[in-house]
Computed example of a mutant assay.
Amino acid sequence: MTVGLRIVADTPQGRLHDERHDMSTAVLARTRVPFPAVVPGLTISPAAPDLWRVSRASGAVVGHIERHGGDDRVRYRARRVLPGGIRSIELGEFWSPREAAELFR
């Protein structure tokens, strides 16, 4: 016996609707949060959960900072975008978000 479930739509409230029932399922999604430090001369904006895009005042993207690890062992990995914007190189891992961002100044 095969049981099929057809998902009709993702609603603005973040719930999925099953056309066969009047029930909905909550969808848990990690949200994008602002970068935890302010660094003069740089604009750091959320790109994905635990990932930020680093750009200069001119708007040119210079790299990314990624948070990884658990609550007690959080690290920040900095990556510089190479000319052309397709590839990047890792610059290092840091204990604080400010240290990772200072590499791009």
Rank of each mutant, 00 (worst) to 15 (best):
T11Q: 14
D18N: 14
T11G: 05
R30Q: 07
D50M: 09
L103R: 11
R79F: 02
R80A: 14
L5T: 13
L28E: 12
V33F: 06
A78P: 05
G84V: 03
I89C: 03
I86P: 01
V62G: 02
A26E: 13
L28T: 11
R32N: 09
V54K: 02
R15S: 01
I65M: 05
R79Y: 05
R53E: 12
A37I: 00
R20Y: 09
V27S: 03
R67T: 01
A29F: 04
S58A: 11
I7E: 04
E90G: 13
I86R: 15
E102F: 02
T2C: 05
A101W: 00
R77K: 15
V33M: 13
I7K: 02
T31K: 15
V62L: 11
G69S: 12
V38F: 02
E99K: 14
H68Y: 15
M23F: 00
Q13M: 09
R79N: 08
R98P: 00
P49S: 07
T2Y: 06
R77V: 05
F94V: 03
V27R: 11
R80Y: 03
D10F: 11
Y76K: 08
G41L: 07
A57W: 06
A48N: 11
V74Q: 15
V39H: 00
R87M: 10
R30I: 03
I65T: 00
R20A: 15
I44Y: 00
W95E: 13
Y76N: 02
I7Q: 04
P36K: 08
V62T: 03
I86M: 12
D72Y: 15
G70Y: 12
G59N: 11
R67M: 11
A29L: 15
P83F: 02
G59V: 07
P97K: 07
H21N: 10
L16A: 07
E99V: 02
A26Y: 06
A47G: 10
S88N: 10
G59C: 08
G59H: 02
A9M: 13
L91V: 01
V38G: 00
P12K: 09
G69Y: 06
T11V: 07
G70V: 14
P46A: 08
A57F: 01
L28C: 06
D22T: 07
P49L: 04
T31W: 03
G92N: 07
A60F: 05
R79C: 07
H64W: 14
E93K: 13
A9S: 11
M23A: 04
S55L: 05
W52D: 01
